[in-house]
């Protein structure tokens, strides 16, 4: 195994992770909600009366983040090397998969593992495993 030292950013990744943990902590303690993006977004399809406001406010806050970051800190580094066709397939898989699996990296990965939930651990192992396998397939077997 070789380590990509050039792109290895332990401190900023740890700092960002701590911010994610603080956000998830505040959301459950102050608002009583699980910070799970696929669930927050999927619950708007279709929007239900009395259940849409908190979802929309949270998402608008997320949308404001890159605008604020760009204004004060500089451009975002977004290197998406997948082709357009792969992006379409990926979007469909992630949309269907996160709803069937009832969560994604935030809901199962951050909140579920923090709750020590065996169900979320199983989900996280499944999606991480599938991610590793897919990257191996695409980068090393098909390429």
């Amino acid at each position: 195994m070789t380590i990509d030292w050039i792109d290895f950013t332990p401190w900023s990744s740890l700092a960002g992770g701590i911010l994610l943990g603080i956000a998830a902590s505040l959301f459950i303690l102050v608002n009583g909600r699980i910070l799970g993006i696929s669930g927050i977004l999927g619950g708007l399809l279709p929007p239900r009366r009395g259940d849409a406001g908190w979802r929309v406010s949270f998402l608008l806050g997320m949308f404001a983040a890159p605008l604020l970051y760009v204004a004060f800190a500089g451009p975002l580094e977004i290197e998406a090397d997948a082709g357009w066709g792969a992006v379409v397939l990926a979007g469909l898989l992630v949309g269907i998969g996160t709803r069937y699996g009832a969560g994604c990296t935030s809901g199962h990965g951050i909140c579920g593992l923090s709750r020590l939930s065996p169900r979320s651990l199983a989900a996280t192992l499944a999606f991480m495993g599938a991610g590793f396998a897919t990257v191996y397939l695409v980068r090393h077997l098909l390429a």
Binding site: I37, S38, L41, L59, M62, F63, A65, P66, L76, A80, D81, A82, A86, V87, L89, A90, G91, L92, L93, V94, I96, G97, T98, R99, Y100, G101, A102, C104, T105, S106, H108, R119, A122, A123, T124, A126, F127, M128, G129, A130, G131, F132, A133, T134, V135, V138
Partner: peptide, 24 residues
């Protein structure tokens, strides 16, 4: 749970986007 998560992981590995960062 497992089937959905496997589909999600495959999509995540394919393009490198999961829901939250993709929205940002």
């Amino acid at each position: 749970l497992i089937g959905g998560s496997l589909l999600f992981g495959a999509g995540w590995g394919l393009a490198g986007f999961c829901p939250a960062p993709a929205l940002v």
